[in-house]
Design a protein around this nucleic acid. Structure first.
Lengths: 219, 219
DNA sequence: CGCAACTTTGATACAACTCAAAAAATGTGG
DNA sequence: CCACATTTTTTGAGTTGTATCAAAGTTGCG
């Protein structure tokens, strides 16, 4: 939700944060990352702030039992890697080949000294991230089908695609984001197709044929 | 984790936020709330910022299927109700009879005008809240016993009680926080007692007899 | 003390997981 | 562009952990 794009979601106090997003894109150095390559690791110093230019990025943690929990997917326009502490709480990887604009945190802090609206914008970004994670919590207590339906709606909304969603991530990624197994994700998709809510027009291409029904599951 | 208290958790960039917490306690009007009474409702204007003085507070949302998801428990010293948008994202209620210090958001904003460190402090509070919710996500993808063990450790840590934890909330509250049913919470507690990790010395009093074992489950 | 609310325990059901294998998609070199 | 190898996704069968339904204890308060 840290997006430049317009969205059907309410965007309170958005102006400053979005202006900052523009700044990152303009000032930041664009860097290419290959699929599955690490952008930063958990515990590393949070020296930079990142914005997806093209492609997609995931943040995640590895649990002690070896499972991986994905914290978020970031799409073009989204800012990630903003921490208030010294280090990153999660690791970040490229979901697919992608380009990321990078700006030094210290240069933003320097800008913020002369312009309190930048501090305000950074705060807003953190608050939006908080709202996003709160939604994630609500997602994780719902049924498998509801989680998948909600995920599809979110992706459709964020990619501004008219009903036809191209998922940049694998079933494993989706499963690890939703707290499910890949088999359960696959079956949930098949069930949604059976209910004529979606149409699987390729492994990673989904047509949302009945958004009403998906919303009913999501709500 | 928005606490004045000392804690075994790392507290990065804590000074300003804690100073602010002191300000709320000093400047805020102490207001008593009866058990289960509403402090604010989801969607209401976020006019005030709150700090628990005594007792405990829960924030929550009601899902469309009628279930309730608790977002957080706030204990003495903790600040809650800080939003960046115009309205509250969750509702807040008194878990038990409690006292809450209340300060107008506008007066903090006024203070912040002359002191950028106050803006910084508010940002830090939001960031801590973000970290807390991220932990909550990790909790919700674990087994019932692991969730309960983790919850007990968190409560022990936050109440700074030497092994003996008094839970201010009911099983229903715990279940709704952990995304479980009350029966499963009860059984998980019984199982932990069977493994000699804890001792139930009353419905709401738990003795942590083997913190090592609990931490192994938590990790 | 007695009642109401809360918690525990038991029996059963079901959703999601695990293990296994087939099918489909993707990438690669000839 | 095709044939093959590899990876990813789907489907199937069986298991398991948690939910549900029901009832018995327990706690705490008026």
């Amino acid at each position: 939700m840290l997006a430049l794009r317009t969205s059907t979601q309410p965007q309170p106090v958005a102006v400053d944060a979005d202006a900052l997003a523009l700044s990152v894109a303009r000032l930041g150095a664009p860097i290419p990352y290959a699929r599955d390559s690490e952008i930063y690791g958990e515990g590393e110093e949070a020296e930079y702030i990142y914005q997806v230019v093209s492609g997609a990025v995931r943040t995640y943690k590895i649990l002690n039992d070896g499972r991986r929990q994905i914290g978020a997917f970031y799409l073009p326009g989204d800012i990630f890697g903003l921490e208030i502490g010294e280090t990153h709480d999660l690791s970040a990887e490229a979901v697919c080949d992608c380009t990321v604009a990078v700006i030094k945190r210290s240069s933003l802090v320097k800008l913020a000294k002369g312009d309190s609206s930048i501090t305000q914008a950074l705060w807003t970004l953190t608050a939006r991230e908080l709202q996003r994670v709160q939604k994630h919590v609500l997602l994780l207590v719902r049924s498998a089908q509801e989680r998948v339906a909600s995920f599809l709606l979110e992706m459709a909304d964020r990619t501004a695609s008219a009903g036809s969603v191209v998922l940049p991530m694998s079933r494993r990624d989706i499963a690890d984001y939703l707290g499910l197994t890949i088999e359960t994700v696959s079956r949930a998709l098949a069930a949604l197709e059976g209910q004529a809510a979606i149409e699987l027009t390729g492994a990673r291409r989904v047509q949302l044929t009945n958004v009403r029904e998906l919303r009913r599951l999501d709500s």
